[in-house]
Design a binder for these strands. Sequence first.
DNA 1: ATGAAAGCGCTAACAT
DNA 2: ATGTTAGCGCTTTCAT
Lengths: 338, 338
Amino acid sequence: MVGIDDVARHAGVSTATVSRALSGNGHVSPATRLKVEASAGELGYVVSSTASSLASGRMKNIGVVVPFLDRWFFSSVVEGAQKSLLKNGFDLTLFSLTGGGGERRIVFNHFLLRQRVDAVIAISLELTTTEVATLHALDKPLVGVGGPIEGVRTLTIDDVAVARLATEHLLSLGHTRIAHIGGNEDVDRDFHLPTNRRVGYELALTAAGITPAAELFRPADFTMKSGYQAAIQLLGNPRGRPSAVFAGSDEMAIGVILAARDLGLVVPRDVSVIGIDDHELADFFGLTTIAQFPQGQGEKAVEILLDRLRPGQNQLSSLNTPMPFELLVRSSTARPGE
Amino acid sequence: MVGIDDVARHAGVSTATVSRALSGNGHVSPATRLKVEASAGELGYVVSSTASSLASGRMKNIGVVVPFLDRWFFSSVVEGAQKSLLKNGFDLTLFSLTGGGGERRIVFNHFLLRQRVDAVIAISLELTTTEVATLHALDKPLVGVGGPIEGVRTLTIDDVAVARLATEHLLSLGHTRIAHIGGNEDVDRDFHLPTNRRVGYELALTAAGITPAAELFRPADFTMKSGYQAAIQLLGNPRGRPSAVFAGSDEMAIGVILAARDLGLVVPRDVSVIGIDDHELADFFGLTTIAQFPQGQGEKAVEILLDRLRPGQNQLSSLNTPMPFELLVRSSTARPGE
DNA sequence: ATGAAAGCGCTAACAT
DNA sequence: ATGTTAGCGCTTTCAT
């Protein structure tokens, strides 16, 4: 294994200079830097990350914790983070809490206590005060994505505004009987989505002079199947059937479309459907939706963390950073029939 | 930060004994071990992974490389691997090659050369001989999952057998005009699925005395949309319409079901559909499929790697380990109408 | 079964 | 701008 002193010898400088030249920390004359880089390249030298970390205290590694991995939102955020980290020479250590229970404690005692990461991204996770405090005590920056963490900077779309926009789109088309399929308690516990989406829905309705009807709300668990089942109930009722459905996620919205078809209803002629996400399947189903950009959220999270890791830049930024979203009209929404 | 000598002092032993007691390497009397463990617990001691790695050369970290993350198969394998690694005290460093091109080289020069992992799992990736050689030279065990890597132990289902079983299921129901939607060249390049599935299909047909008809094969890219489009062509033809379709993946199979519905065909009365995977959506669509178990594949990959990492256990096992699969009959297949 | 001590390969403070 | 050098905190021979 070629080490730093091999390079130093070869380039005719000290190890310290090699370290400085290669890491970019400290001043090195351009000529020397070139010489060092040439030597390093020639010898095929690569720093030992362990030795470097031991000496510097930096790991160049950030931990990403997710509840599951096999969901579009989570894996997209992770991909975004990964991409951004790679560019900055950081590794991504993944912790998937699949299985629940014990896993979570193990993860916390495993990577927090072993100091293997410089910072942490928690996706759609509600950390306990203790967990946050532990991280804080170890001086590990933490940012959340898409989940409510007490007192921690969290990146998320403004759920109220998004739901409001979706509902207003339907309203503006002339719909007045608009149903909403939102999260149930289990979802809230598992995904920690703020139930704000329902709030935005009701706000939009009220602003339009419509009183939200209890029978037009259905809880579901964010899967296509649950969206389907909720929609069957909603649309199967021949009296007072809604002319439009706002689903809290695209997967549920697709379930609604499928249910409508099975009931012999044509979308959007008989019923309009709108979702949230811009899931990879949304385009195929012609689903109108409010797009959010999970990859961008992952990238942004990394950006914030790396900023905070840079010495001096210890400014605490605002706690809540609203992320962009965008109405994407496709063919599942239209003016109500007759 | 409480270090190993704090523990040593507190327990009244040497640092070497602490190290041995806590790591399980070397002999320590039960009494001493207990004393050390108590001290460590009391002081809240946790080894510094960097110091430990620097001294021992072990990282307790394995790298997982995937082409994408937001696909059911990939994220499931990763979840399986993660779960299994966690149990063994290993971290998982994720490398997603999303974006292609430069990313790949960076990854290879980034984690191979920095010695940050003890071993590598490559998922559905065709590594170049150079890449494999580099890993080999660095003495990093490597196992592939679901992709063909020259000369490397790879875990995968027997695609020929799987396709054959799927086709035979259809045959045994009495179908004779069986179409197949398989991968196109792009898929082959991106996912490196062996095109063996088509081979198995044709084998089954031939064995049943049926000559595979060219017009009953359609290439697609493994997405729902491409499955839909292929099926529209296949099923839209009023003459010689197949009575059954075997799709190379569940997502495509679901596309087929949707296409059938749009054409006014009833599944399985007018057309039977079978896929491969047991994707999370398969159940919802009542899709008959050949289940494969990606989580299990991830777990198995870890198991093999950890085995190889254990000193002494350097036995090279057989190169090709066929993974289990299983026919799951749901409601999308039946005897052909009249 | 336990202890003493020599590194592991680099970084960063200090000196020049 | 560059060199000298003392650690970083543990693991592992080698003794005992």
